[in-house]
């Protein structure tokens, strides 16, 4: 799989402090293990990887890296400990590529600098793999991290 990294994507990598080789490794690992989210139309994937205290996500098509985002929070697990039925439609637009299950929008507990709170995640009910969406990571989590880091700023 030959993924092109445009100048724009390269800037995103720099903004997030992620190296090119790192992101390509994450995509390669996901492709070989099948551990990734796939859009319903099958055109876009999200791969997840970790480097020291940072969770890194790659959003990509068959040919190109589309987006990169990260969070420093540590995902602890499903809020409440198990996936219980809910009344609302919790189906997301993503499918767990490994299990073929639709990923569910569920709260997951995330922890950073001693503070733990729930936040929306994308969860596969079968394998239990947990992801965070780009919107959530780029807005809410980034701001919360900045607030918690203010003491060190």
């Amino acid at each position: 799989m030959d993924i092109k990294i445009t100048e724009q994507a390269d800037n995103l990598l720099k903004d997030n402090g992620v190296r090119k080789e790192e992101i390509l490794d994450i995509i390669k690992n996901s492709e070989s293990s099948g551990q990734k989210l796939k859009s319903k139309d099958g055109n876009t994937c999200i791969a997840k990887g970790a480097s020291e205290n940072l969770t890194i996500y790659a959003v990509y098509s068959a040919s190109e890296l589309l987006d990169v985002y990260t969070h420093k929070m540590n995902i602890l697990g499903i809020t409440g400990g198990e996936i219980k039925p809910v009344e609302y439609d919790d189906a997301s637009d993503w499918i767990c590529a490994k299990c073929g299950e639709v990923a569910l929008e569920r709260n997951v507990d995330m922890s950073y600098l001693g503070v733990t709170r729930p936040g929306p995640g994308l969860v596969c009910a079968k394998c239990g793999e947990m992801y965070v969406s780009a919107g959530m990571a780029k807005s809410t989590l980034k701001t919360a991290e900045a607030i918690l880091e203010e003491k060190r700023a």
């Binding site: 709260n107 709170r117 809410t140």
Partner: peptide, 19 residues
């Protein structure tokens, strides 16, 4: 940033409340 924060997430995100 205040424009794109989820306003009333049905999941009741604790981190949004935290902010």
């Amino acid at each position: 940033i205040t424009d794109i924060l989820p306003k009333n997430s049905r999941l009741g995100g604790g981190w949004a409340d935290f902010i």
